[in-house]
Nucleic acid binder design. Structure first.
Length: 425
RNA sequence: GGGGAGAUUCCAGAGCGGCCAAAUGGGCCAGACUGUAAAUCUGGUGGUUCUCACCUUCGGCGGUUCGAAUCCGCCUCUCCCCA
């Protein structure tokens, strides 16, 4: 199904730099052709409508007309994670291929709250909260996209100008029956959960965004299909060619649930290489294949071979690929090595922070010390961990939370649980 | 407008006058084991200078009682059925 067309080459300095710096994932530095269906739709679950997409891509390639590719970000939670990366990587491929990426920051829609995948009424955000998240969002998107070539809009640009009359007109473009077809609404109805009337407006707003920016393609997670399709319908009603909808798999979080910052099971795009690597290593063996295919550029034949081999080796490779994409090869490798030293070889990490504190003459009980150093959130928590043998002082397990620690002559090494290390003096 | 059900600790969900800081499962934390921060098994999981005791918590505010998450009143929010 790979598109057969001659390569259209052109040189663009900033693009080249970006490609060089972060080559490993999408297209390994090779810029995809504008109509390379294979690369642009890799991993896609739904492609609506694929013949139309092919046609438009070919047209774009021959006329040199960029397609406008829309991606909406909901600034209601302030962090992007690797789950978003699945889609961002496709956008990046499109961008490298020469298409125009249009990011919509859904500041107006965020005040409604996307009902997708929710079994709960979402709290509506205030303007201030949205503003704050918006800034960090763009910084994070810049980890994957060349923002200098990316168009960014807030949808408040047009929604703020609408009067109630306009809202009614928009609302009139959909029917309740149509809205209720949506699986999340259906499930919530069945489960007897709350559905706010304003939530029906969400898909319409997102769809209206497509009309306003005249998108050719919109990308989203599989849970976005309904919203994307509404965009198509609205565009048709407004006399525009309906956008192509591409959906990509949602990636599960570290614990198998949907990846979300609020579940604490995500890997954020701005996390350190060490953090990323370690979190990947905590994945269950059975999801490695999906992660390889969705988040790395490792060829299928190699993935198959890795999965057939030792899971530990495969997972380490996965972690290294992911950490390398965001932080460079060297950092990725370093993270992998540091992990091996700490967890496989059980050596101490090389970068143990050291703190200095005040010591009363008669010392400090261990549990209190741990809390004061911030290793434990409360002294009860500290006590439990100590009693369970989770705390080592200079390498020795200390099971007595009341053990009094005196001012140490040399910095005292404290190991709290598996991951927290600290030296105090 | 009428009738019914419900709001519990991070989440789901028991409890229905004292034995409740509150079952169980998930998550999380620790330990054992290991190939890893996988899997599995074990323990822990409100706070307090802590095995006792005390303090805060079961939508909100009051009340009944020696004693309430549990009973009563009002309030807020949600769901269902009927109109």
């Amino acid at each position: 199904m790979a598109g057969v067309a001659r390569e259209t080459r052109r040189s663009g300095a900033p693009e080249a730099r970006l490609a060089a710096r972060r080559s490993p994932i999408c297209g390994a530095g090779k810029r995809p052709r504008m109509n390379d269906l294979e690369i642009l739709t890799r991993n896609a679950v739904d492609v609506i409508e694929s013949t139309d997409l092919k046609k438009r891509l070919d047209h774009a390639a021959s006329k040199g007309r960029k397609l406008r590719v829309k991606f909406g970000m909901d600034p209601s939670s302030p962090d992007l994670h690797v789950g978003h990366a699945v889609q961002l990587l496709r956008l990046r491929a499109m961008q490298l291929a020469g298409h125009q990426i249009v990011l919509i920051v859904g500041d107006a829609t965020a005040m409604v709250g996307d009902p997708s995948g929710r079994n709960k009424l979402r709290p509506q955000l205030t303007r201030e909260e949205v503003e704050k998240n918006l800034v960090t969002y763009q910084e994070q998107a810049a980890r994957v996209l060349d923002m200098s070539k990316t168009e960014v809009h807030r949808n408040s640009e047009w929604f703020d100008k609408m009067r109630f009359e306009d809202v009614l007109r928009l609302a009139g473009k959909a029917t309740v029956a149509r809205m209720l077809e949506r699986d999340t609404f259906e499930k919530r109805m069945e489960a007897g959960e709350a559905i706010g009337v304003h939530e029906f407006l969400y898909p319409l707003m997102q769809g209206w965004d497509s009309v306003m920016i005249r998108s050719d393609v919109e990308i989203g997670g599989t849970d976005q299909l309904f919203n994307l399709l509404v965009g198509r319908e609205l565009q048709e009603k407004e006399g525009q060619p309906p956008q192509i909808c591409l959906t990509f798999p949602l990636i599960n979080g570290l614990d198998g649930r949907k990846m979300s910052k609020s579940y604490g099971n995500s890997i954020g795009l701005t996390e350190s290489a060490g953090e990323m690597f370690g979190k990947v290593m905590s994945l269950g063996d059975d999801v490695m294949g999906a992660w390889f295919r969705l988040l790395t550029d490792v060829p299928e034949s190699e993935v198959t071979a890795l999965l057939a081999g030792h899971p530990r080796t495969a997972k380490a490779r996965l972690g290294e690929e992911i950490a390398s994409f965001f932080h460079g090869r060297d950092a990725g490798r370093a993270a992998s090595e540091a992990f091996d030293r700490q967890f496989r070889d059980r050596e101490l990490p090389s970068d143990i922070p050291e703190v200095t504190r005040e010591w009363p003459a008669d010392g400090v009980p261990l549990a209190v010390l741990l809390r004061e150093l911030g290793l434990a959130p409360s002294s009860s928590e500290a006590r439990r961990t100590v009693e369970q043998g989770g705390v080592k002082l200079d390498g020795e397990v200390q099971r007595d939370p009341k053990f009094v620690v005196q001012r140490p002559a040399a910095p005292l090494l404290i190991q709290f649980g598996k991951r927290k290390y600290l030296r105090v003096r």
